[in-house]
């Protein structure tokens, strides 16, 4: 017995090394699973406060760009409002609630961001207290940004579109053809549009938007512009590269969108045994 203990004692460095590495690998695996622990990341209380303090200082340097973006969004909304205003000389009937909007919007500020890794995450300064929920979509006036992964009371972590495991249901605006946008980890300004069949004609310059099928984003938010269409290694699908409309290196203010009918939609899908992604 004593010999065994002595033997183990002589190996103590190696054993502790293995133990620490096992913990680290367990952390990697559990964090990358979809239901990953949200506590030990940039949205927990201490880290979030540090990041927010830093953002309060450095935020001033990007105020110009932020203002420009907000002004742009305002102008676009004003144009849209113009269409919706009723002229006084005509009569209107309120439509049925079936046509009521299924989406609710909130705003937040980016306090931490990365674009250079293969799995990039963003931290926002709003959390459960402000109505943020897991699975909400995130976008800004330029286009789609990502999906909320974890929420704490005051902060939330977002899986960026620049994450090699995030698939985004999308379609080509001109032809209404569906596909999935996925980042390939190469270049933070470009992504791939997958699963577009070969017989479809795709032109350079076509706009790619969200399809509204996965019920996270409403239909019609910009994702990118088609840059290159190739035949690709897979026999059934085209190899399409798109230029992302969102400039991920300069994120400041973002919008969160929640589908208020998500629960109903999910339970319907579950009842009819459809797996929808």
């Amino acid at each position: 017995m004593q010999r065994i203990l002595l033997f183990l004692y002589s190996l103590r460095v190696f054993i502790i090394f293995i133990a620490l590495e096992t913990i680290a690998i367990w952390l990697i695996v559990s964090y990358n699973s979809p239901q990953g622990a949200v506590f030990f990341n940039s949205s927990n209380h201490i880290t979030g406060n540090f990041l927010e303090t830093r953002e309060n200082v450095t935020g001033y340097f990007t105020l110009g760009i932020a203002n420009e973006g907000l002004a742009e969004k305002n102008a676009e909304l004003l144009t849209r409002l113009e269409y919706l205003t009723h002229p006084r000389d005509s009569a209107y009937i309120d439509l049925d609630s079936a046509f009521a909007s299924a989406h609710e919007f909130r705003s937040a500020k980016v306090i931490n961001n990365s674009i250079r890794f293969n799995q990039n995450h963003i931290t926002l300064n709003k959390g459960r207290r402000h109505g943020v929920r897991e699975g909400m979509g995130v976008f800004n006036e330029q286009g789609v940004i990502g999906r909320v992964k974890g929420v704490t009371n005051n902060f939330s972590t977002v899986i960026s579109l620049l994450h090699t495991e995030l698939l985004l249901s999308s379609k080509i605006k001109a032809s209404d053809v569906f596909g999935s946008t996925k980042w390939d980890g190469k270049n933070p300004t470009q992504a791939k549009l997958l699963y577009v069949p070969r017989h479809v004609r795709v032109n350079k310059g076509d706009t790619v938007i969200t399809s509204g099928y996965n019920a996270i984003f409403p239909e019609g938010i910009n994702i990118g512009i088609v840059d290159e269409v190739g035949s690709g290694p897979e026999t059934n699908y085209l190899d399409i590269t798109i230029n992302l409309t969102t400039d991920f290196s300069r994120l400041t203010f973002v919008y969160l969108v929640e589908n208020v009918m998500q629960v109903e939609l999910d339970s319907l899908n579950r009842a009819s045994e459809i797996i929808n992604e």
């Binding site: 090394f17 620490l20 952390l27 990697i28 964090y31 030990f40 990341n41 940039s42 927990n44």
Partner: peptide, 30 residues
């Protein structure tokens, strides 16, 4: 080595929280 590995673990783990790369800095630094 043992105290150094523990220091590395704490260092890597704290940096991971800010990088959102849980465990990656920890594993390589240890």
């Amino acid at each position: 080595t043992i105290p150094l590995m523990i220091i590395s673990f704490i260092m890597g783990f704290s940096i991971d929280m800010f990088y959102d790369t849980l465990g990656m800095h920890t594993a390589s630094l240890v």
